[in-house]
Write a protein that binds this DNA or RNA. Structure first.
Lengths: 170, 170
DNA sequence: TATTATTTTTGACATTAATCAAAAATCTAT
DNA sequence: ATAGATTTTTGATTAATGTCAAAAATAATA
């Protein structure tokens, strides 16, 4: 399987600020981040809302678009220069058809991603701005170290000004 | 595979208000709802926060606990009398090992659940209470029809009083 | 290093929603 | 049908956060 995987995968090196996906286009690739970081964001009333980050060893794509093959509602942009591995939807599906083991790996990846998202959801509801920030500081210090404040604010679901004030009185 | 599945699955009929899972216990079963509805909730500062609902044809469990086999942080309670099909973690794993096809079905189920959750997350951030409610009215009218207001309020991440006011001025 | 652009902070104010308490409405069971 | 329990609504008040605008700090570029 290893060889078959390598045959189907492409290494991609891209500079900061490049886009992997832009809204309105159908997303045909899944990416694995070897090095660097990306953000997913969408537009809401003229503002960019960053709703997730991807770092080393994450699989990233617009999952909604990749799975349904409908146009993406989000954009994925590199926050740092990246080394990525890309696989097309078709190639991935061939792999899943051929190897039970591949299917299992992806199933387990989804499990992990599902409970990670669920956890994030639960920890976001009914929290004050400072709880959200302190929580992030504890659970994901790497985000605070590597990501501009403006992105973090919308990731937490609060305004940039509020985040700034929360930090100042910490 | 069909027969093997049926061998491993148990029909469970339970009355309203019964619990499928309570927090602190490890969740060893996955349930499929044939008839009825359930809610998942956790305790936050003495309050019950209902964070999801399950209806006919949904798979439900405390996914975090079921997947990791750590104690659950949530409770699952029947909102109506239910007809459920239950499968143990071990039985499911045997099935996944034996049949690529089973693995695939579960993988696809996770895909669906993942993007459903993601969508809910995105539609929750940066919305006013009335946007949240109108959104729910549009996307999931069955929830409003079958679920008490108090549960819906915490599902939307707002107080019951606010939800009541939103409804009155609609 | 000087200049410009970008990001972050601060201030004043408006708005939304939470909280607490009590009344009204609805549901349940005798 | 009636009494009791539960759920929902309403009112008054408070607290938290958003918004707009401008200043300060930081980073990027010539």
């Amino acid at each position: 399987m290893q060889q078959r995987l390598l045959d189907r995968v492409t290494k991609v090196v891209l500079p900061k600020n490049e886009f992997l996906i832009t809204e309105g286009r159908v997303c045909r690739h899944l990416y694995f981040i070897e090095q660097g970081s990306v953000r997913g964001f969408y537009n809401l009333e003229g503002k960019e809302i960053t709703h997730w980050f991807g770092f080393e060893n994450d699989f990233v794509t617009s999952f909604h678009s990749f799975i349904t093959q409908e146009p993406a509602v989000e954009n994925i942009q590199l926050m740092e220069g990246c080394v990525l591995w890309s696989i097309s939807k078709e190639a991935l599906e061939e792999l899943l058809n051929e190897y039970h083991e591949a299917e299992r790996l992806i199933r387990i990846a989804y499990e992990k991603y599902y409970i990670r998202l669920e956890e994030r959801f639960v920890n976001a509801q009914f929290r004050t701005a400072s709880e959200l920030y302190e929580n992030l500081l504890q659970r994901s210090p790497h985000i605070i170290e590597r990501v501009p404040l403006g992105y973090i604010a919308s990731y937490l679901g609060i305004s940039q000004e509020t985040l700034s004030r929360v930090r100042s009185r910490l």
